[in-house]
């Protein structure tokens, strides 16, 4: 498997506090990579550097490189909007727009210039099918998305992200606000999606990392402590700190 994303000597500051220190990582294509670590360790911050969502915070300063298909995404010539189309994001709290289910899914394609009703209908259906929610919502596509349950909203947000045909899907603790049943549906969905997409997921829940990911990265205080195959990292951690964390000694 080839690496679709790599970070090289990545440092990030909020104002004067350094939140990421010299992070180096390679993320393979068509796999699930999990970022674990205690709160405030920088895992979410790092995830957001991968599609430049940190640009929205004015005080952030970044050094180093993040390459997507060999191209540094912090290069001046990169179109951020196009980048975010290819590297989609699902947020911690489900955040559907206050519009109909249909308009939510169609928002991305419309943003990128698709106007044909036929084409949009097709994309909406396909995305909802891919996110395994089509059967639940096909009869109420014109209803407001805010009327759905939390778990449905999150799958809707995944469908919304898929609608722009991304290559990579970044998920920031996508199940932390959901009940166990909704959580397991999202996990199944993630495993299903890895056939066609590369998934990077930040999670608080170590069992989740074990259940779904191929590789796991452990972050602590802004540093990438250990990175490797999930099975290996959880059974024979190389670093003492990783061991302490996964055996529940802190965090």
């Amino acid at each position: 498997m080839s690496d679709i994303m790599t970070a090289k000597d990545l440092n990030l500051w909020y104002d004067k506090t350094q939140a990421l220190k010299n992070v180096n990582i390679r993320i393979p294509e068509n796999s699930i990579t999990a970022f674990i670590g205690p709160s405030g360790c920088g895992k979410s911050t790092f995830l957001k550097t991968l599609n430049r969502m940190n640009d929205l915070i004015p005080t952030v300063k970044i050094t180093g490189e993040v390459c997507y298909n060999g191209q540094n995404i912090y290069d001046g010539s990169v179109d951020v909007n196009e980048l975010r189309r290819e590297i989609g994001m699902v947020f911690q709290k489900p955040n559907p727009f206050p519009m109909s289910i249909y308009d939510n899914i169609a928002y991305g394609p419309r943003t990128h210039g698709i106007k044909s009703k036929v084409k949009l209908d097709e994309i909406v259906e396909q995305s909802l099918r891919d996110a395994a929610i089509w059967d639940e919502v096909k009869d109420r596509l014109k209803k407001n998305a805010l009327g759905m349950s939390g778990g449905q909203q999150q799958r809707l947000c995944i469908a919304r992200a898929l609608a722009v045909k991304p290559k990579i899907l970044l998920m920031d603790e996508p199940t932390s606000a959901l009940d166990p049943i909704s959580t397991s549906r999202i996990e199944e969905l993630a495993i299903e999606l890895k056939k066609n997409y590369t998934i990077v997921v930040v999670t608080h829940n170590m069992q989740q990392a074990v259940r779904i990911s191929d590789n796991t990265a452990f972050f602590l205080l802004g540093e990438l402590i250990e990175y490797g195959e999930t099975e290996k990292l959880f059974s024979q951690p190389l670093d003492k700190r990783t061991e302490d964390y996964i055996t529940g000694r802190f965090g």
Binding site: L56, N95, T111, V164
Partner: peptide, 14 residues
Amino acid sequence: PQSYRDGAFGLGAG
């Protein structure tokens, strides 16, 4: 909510 803006930016909207 800021999350609406994030959601839209995350889809690549200008």
